[in-house]
Design a protein around this nucleic acid. Structure first.
Length: 455
DNA sequence: CTGGGGATGGGGCCC
DNA sequence: CGGGCCCCATCCCCA
């Protein structure tokens, strides 16, 4: 005998427990506010929490703490309420942020509803607007700032709408990919359905620094930010997650470094990276990643819709999800996902590899120009431009074949890497040129051949 | 505000 | 299978 009301009653009971702080075993810090919830509910509601909690599932009785800085407390309140009630108070003001947060937390139902809300508000699909989830009329919808209370049917047994369930299921299926599963390739559908939301969220990411939803339409950078899997410490018993605030990659890496020094050391020792672990894990789970509808020679990323033809490419691709950057630049400490990127960076930034004058953009040769150093950056200047900045008196006959001048100034990046044997810091003679603001350092370039040491 | 160019990141694929 | 090269998209800075 089926009791349809049981689910909703159960959810109500859980919500009651949450509000009375009973049996809450997970603490979520958002914007200075502490939310308490049940692991089971979070696990069942969010792909993000599913992954987060699955990595600490072995611990019992230990509260799990997660910290988010990427969305507001109000937004998380709405999402948490949704988890416990299936009701989502959407409005034109909060839909983007809720969708962004839901994307981050991998709550497919919320993403789908938000998509439909946006789509409806822009009157792109009249059929969906009229039929799905009791959408408000355009006049009373998002444009006017009024709030529409959406219910996904969570805890109600079914989708409470006139839309055929199959359509909704197909829509939600196409909205995202189960981080543990291997959803069919839906690039084309996603491309068409994400047009509005992707544009909106792109704008939001630029200004509000909210990470974006994992989808096949996101840019590589967005993709890396969006689909990065959560961090855990090595013990897994207490998880403190500091999420990126959408800042620059390097700053984020510094943040990650501060959070997970042991993991960084693991990279340095060339041991298995998190990407390796994930790779091994998913290979172990699925055996072969090309088991779905795709050709057997394709391998599918479990975190996004991307497919590759080779396992090695998948392994490399996983780095963008784990956020790992195993290859540091020896000169400035900036970290990269690939060795070739470090080399390219080193050549262009620290070796002045381009025979182009940085200022006048003219081609320079060893005779017509000099290598100039500004912080950890090196570039070439033609002799004419060097003279204009007051470095014309600098002698060309230095120890190295390639004279080098250092223009002091604020380094664009604070090195976190410790220089080896005083590279670029020793054998430096400072020549203070009073005629300009430029402080010229004469350096010994004998260590020019030193390449980044890749751990 | 906008366009150009450099820097960076990621995918495909060859060796 | 890893390394490396090439290509392209995107971001970011600056004029």
């Amino acid at each position: 005998m089926d009791l349809p009301s049981h689910h909703s009653r159960l959810l109500q009971q859980l919500d009651e427990q949450r509000k009375r702080n009973l049996f809450c075993d997970c603490h979520i810090m958002v914007d200075g506010h502490t939310f308490r919830a049940h692991r089971n509910v979070l696990f069942a509601s969010s792909g993000y929490f599913k992954m987060l909690l699955s990595q600490s599932s072995g611990e019992v009785g230990q509260p799990t703490t997660a910290t988010f800085d990427v969305f507001s407390a109000d937004t998380f309140t709405a999402i948490l309420d949704f988890m416990y009630s299936g009701k989502l108070p959407l409005s034109g003001q909060n839909v983007i942020e809720i969708m962004s947060a839901a994307s981050y937390l991998q709550i497919t139902e919320v993403i789908g509803v938000c998509k439909m809300f946006i789509k409806s508000s822009l009157d792109i699909n009249e059929k969906d607007r009229d039929g799905f989830l009791d959408m408000p009329d355009k006049e009373s919808g998002p444009q006017t700032g009024q709030c529409g209370l959406y219910s996904t049917g969570w805890g109600m047994g079914r989708y409470p709408c006139n839309q055929p369930e199959g359509d909704i299921a197909a829509y939600l299926e196409s909205s995202s990919c189960d981080p543990y599963g291997f959803c069919p390739r839906t690039d084309e559908r996603l491309s068409s359905q994400n047009n509005v939301s992707t544009a909106s969220m792109k704008m939001l990411d630029r200004h509000n620094r909210i990470p974006q939803m994992p989808s096949s339409t996101c840019s590589p950078d967005e993709h890396m930010r969006d689909c990065r899997i959560p961090e855990t410490n090595d013990t897994g018993c207490h998880i403190e997650v500091e999420l990126p605030q959408g800042e620059e990659t390097e700053a984020f890496m510094n943040c990650r470094t501060a959070i997970q020094p042991r993991a960084r050391r693991r990279h340095s020792l060339n041991r298995a990276t998190k990407a390796d672990e994930v790779y091994a894990k998913i290979m172990g789970i699925k055996g072969c990643l090309g088991e779905d509808n795709l050709p057997s020679m394709h391998f599918k990323c479990p975190f996004c819709t991307h497919t590759v033809k080779r396992k090695a490419d998948l392994k490399r691709h996983l780095l963008c999800h784990t956020g790992e950057r195993p290859y540091p630049c020896q000169a400035c400490g900036k970290r990269f996902t690939r060795l070739e990127h470090v080399r390219s960076h080193y050549r262009t930034i620290h070796e002045a590899g381009k025979p182009i004058c940085r200022w006048c953009k003219r081609h320079v040769t060893e005779d017509s120009g000099q290598v100039v150093q500004e912080g950890t950056r090196r570039f070439r200047l033609c002799n004419k431009c060097v003279a204009e900045v007051g470095a014309g008196s600098f002698p060309n006959e230095v120890d190295d074949d390639e004279p080098t001048i250092i223009l002091s100034g604020d380094e664009d990046k604070e090195p976190t890497w410790s220089f080896h044997d005083g590279i670029h810091t020793s054998d430096t003679e400072i020549i203070d040129d009073a005629s300009s603001d430029v402080v010229i350092h004469k350096v010994d370039d004998s260590d020019e051949e030193i390449k980044p040491i890749i751990c």
